[in-house]
Structure formats: structure tokens, C-alpha cells
Amino acid sequence: MKKEHSKAKKYGMVIDLDKCTGCGACMVACMAENNVPFKKDESNKLDSITWLRVFKLTNGKSFPDADTCYLPRPCMHCEGEHGHAPCVSVCPATATDYSHETGIVSQIYTRCFGCRYCMAACPYHARYFNWWDPVWPEGMEKLLNPNVSVRMRGVVEKCSFCFHRYQAAKEKAYYEGRQELEEDEYQTACTQACPAGAITFGDLNNPKHAVYELKKDKNAFRLLERLGTNPKVYYISTRKWVRQAGDNYLEGYETEGKVKKHR
């Protein structure tokens, strides 16, 4: 038991919001990699399936003191306490689960029957429901990736940290007689795609991985930390208002510096 624990991974992300340009390359990389469908009108963002969505934050000040910042939001792969992520706790079908081996919150489409409890429970709006069957224009189904199954009407889907890439990397390592993966062997599609190098992905438990140090940056924060979801996606911003926006900052509430851990 103990031995297993020492080997457990905690895959996570650190996103540098100072570098993020809001270009959206990560979103397209994600959609192309994960066979995310698209409709003729995607301007209603409530039903627009975007595993990774880039939000635009504004500081609320008037011209010329206005400022904006982009914030890419994948699934946070919350650990909660001992793997009790908000969505995992409520799923009646065990369609979503927290893996103690990788720290990844899975979503098994064939188990999901569409009750959407998990969507209600997720404080990050990271989960999306398939209200319609996906339709690809004639000829375009050719670009579907065989490593990720296509979802259908009636199920919930979300970012998987490109779990199929982890599986492929593990298989390759196993084939080569290795137990451990190198940092660059398993990277998500968005991390790989970001032209600004704003996203860093790796094992938060592994001191050899870049995320290990980055997450300790003095400007690092997580979204809605006070809820105790214990997310595995960290953000870095040198702008105070951005850091405050990350935690539903209320006037007079002490959140600067080290945020109090929820108990």
C-alpha cells in the first residue's frame, strides 16, 4: 500500500496568464485532438461544448484604466479531500471518478446517462452536456481522431487532460520496459499547442517536473480555492486584480498572499 502511494502521480497544470495572448490555439488543439463537435451557431456559450474555454476577464474600471486578461479554463481535475471532487461525489452512475494513480478525473461516456448532477456540482462550468447528436459536415468526419471516442446526445463530457495520450505513453514505456514516464512523454494537446508557452503540464508531485516549482510562484493561485475543491490547475499573474478575480474576491476579505486552506 505504502509503496503504491509513493508512486502516485498528480498531473496538473500551471498557466501563466501574463503570457497567455488569448489567441485560442489551445481551444482548437483541444477540439481537434478530442473530436469535440461544432454546431452552425456556437454563439450561445451555455451550450457550446468547449473542454477548454478561454474566458476574458475585465477589471471593471473605465477608460483608460480598463484592463483585460484571458484565462484558459480546462477541467480543474479537483482532488478535493482524498479525491472527493465535487462532480465525483454526486455521480449516481460512477461515470466520473478520481484516479489516485494519476490525479485525473475521468469521464466514461458509456456509463453516463445524462442526469447532469455533475454539471450542477462543478463550480467551474467545466462540464458540458450533449444536447444534440454531433454532426460533421460531409467529408469532415475524416479528420476524427481514432484515439478518442465520439460522444453522442445525452451524455456529459469534459476535459480529460488528454488521458489517451497518457495511455499511449504508458504503453510505449511498458513496451520499452520502463515504469516511469519522462516529463515530455505525456503532454496535453493544449500545452503542446500554446504558441506563447503559457501552459506547463506535468506531475505536481515530481520535483523534476517544471510545474513542481512553478506552482510555488508567489503569484500563483487557483480558482475558487476557498471552496476546498483543491484544483490541480494553477494560474500565475503579476496583476493583483487578476489574482483577486480568481477567487470571487469580496471587498475587505483577506485573500492576498497565501490563501487560507479550506478545512
Binding site: 481551444m27 482548437v28 461544432f38 456556437e42 457550446s48 468547449t50 476574458k56
Partner: peptide
């Protein structure tokens, strides 16, 4: 292409 249009914000 459709993927790009999908990323366009509702503003």
C-alpha cells in the same frame, strides 16, 4: 473554418 468560429466570443 468552423473550429475558429466556435472560439469567437459572444461579445
Amino acid at each position: 473554418p468552423p473550429f475558429l468560429t466556435k472560439t469567437v466570443e459572444d461579445t
